Simulated assay, not measured.
Amino acid sequence: MSDAALRTTLEPRIPALAGLRRISLRIGEAAFRRLVKLGWLLILPAVTLPIWIVGTGHGWLPEQILPRPQDVLHTLRDMIASGELAQHAGYSLRRVAFGFAIGATAGLIAGSAMGLSRRVDDYVRPLFTAIAQVPALAWIPLAMLLLGIGEGLKIVVIAKAAFVPVVMNTSAGIANVPKAFVEVGETFRFTPLQMLRHVVLPGSVPPIFTGLRYGLTHAWIALVSVELLASSEGLGYLLVWGRQMFWLDTVLVAMIVIGVIGFASDKVLAVIEARLQRWRIDDVR
C-alpha cells in the first residue's frame, strides 16, 4: 500500500484514537486518585495493627486491658452468628434515623428561614445561639425529668445534636449564595419562587450538605452518649456492659461497628451531594 493510501486510511481514525487515548488517561487518573485515597485510608490500620499484634504478643498490657486481635475477631464472629450484634446495631440505627430525620428537617426549615429573611435571623439567632452553646449531653438531665429514660429521651437528644450544625450551615449557605448566580436569575427575571428553586437552593447545596454531614456525625456521638447513660440495648450499651464486665473485646467490637456505620453513612451523604452538584462549575463567584 502506498504512503498516500495508508494516510487516507488512517486519517479518519486518528481523532477516534486520540479520543480513546484521552478517555483511557482520564480513567487511569481517576483510578490512581482512588488508590491514593485508599492508601491514606489504610495508613492508620497498617501502623496500629502490627503494634497491637506485637504488644499483645509480648504482654505489654494485660489481656483484660488490651485483648489480642484474634480474640476480638472471634468475639465479632460469635456476636454476628448469634444475632446479638445485629440486634444492638438495629436499635442504634433506628434511633439515629428517627432523631436525625427530625433534627435535620427542623434544622433545614429554621436555617432556610434565617438565611432568606434578615428579620427572622435577627429575632431567632440570639435564642438559637444560646441553645447551641449548651451541648446535647447537658440536656439529658432535664430531658430525663420530662421524658423519662425511654425512646423519647434518646430521639430528642439525637435530634438536638443534629439540629444545630444543620441550622448553622443552611443559614450561612443560603445567605452567601454567590452573587453571580443571583445576577443570572435577575437577568432572566425569575420570580422569588423561581429564584429560590433554581438559584438559591442549588447554589447552597455544598454548605447545606456539610451541615447534614456534621449533623449526622453529632447524632452518632449523641446516640452513643445517651445509650451509655440510659439504655439497656444498643451499641452504646455494649460499650458500658463490656467495660463493666471487663470484656474489652466486646468494647472494641462495638467501637469498630460504630466507626464503620458512621463512616458508611457519611459516604452515602457525600455521594448524594456529588450527584446534586454535577452541574456546578468550580470557582464561580
Rank of each mutant, 00 (worst) to 15 (best):
P192Y: 01
V166Y: 10
L216N: 11
G173K: 06
D121V: 12
I208H: 10
A161L: 07
M168D: 12
R197V: 09
K160D: 04
A143D: 04
M144K: 14
T217G: 15
Y237D: 05
A143L: 12
G152H: 07
M195C: 06
L223G: 08
Q133C: 14
V124G: 02
G115H: 03
A162R: 01
R119I: 14
G150V: 08
V166H: 04
A175L: 15
G148A: 02
V182A: 10
W139S: 02
R125D: 03
I158C: 07
V226M: 11
V226N: 04
G234T: 02
I158L: 05
E233I: 12
M144T: 13
Q133P: 09
H198K: 14
K154Y: 04
P207K: 03
V157D: 02
G215S: 08
T210W: 09
P206Q: 01
W220A: 15
A143G: 00
M144C: 10
L142I: 13
L212S: 10
L116G: 02
R189S: 14
P141T: 07
V177E: 05
R189W: 07
A136N: 02
P192C: 06
P135A: 09
S204I: 11
T170H: 02
A180Q: 12
V166G: 10
Y123T: 05
Y214A: 14
A159M: 07
A172R: 12
F209V: 09
D121R: 15
F163H: 07
M168Q: 10
S171F: 04
L193Y: 09
P207F: 01
F209T: 14
P178S: 02
V205R: 13
V199E: 01
K160C: 06
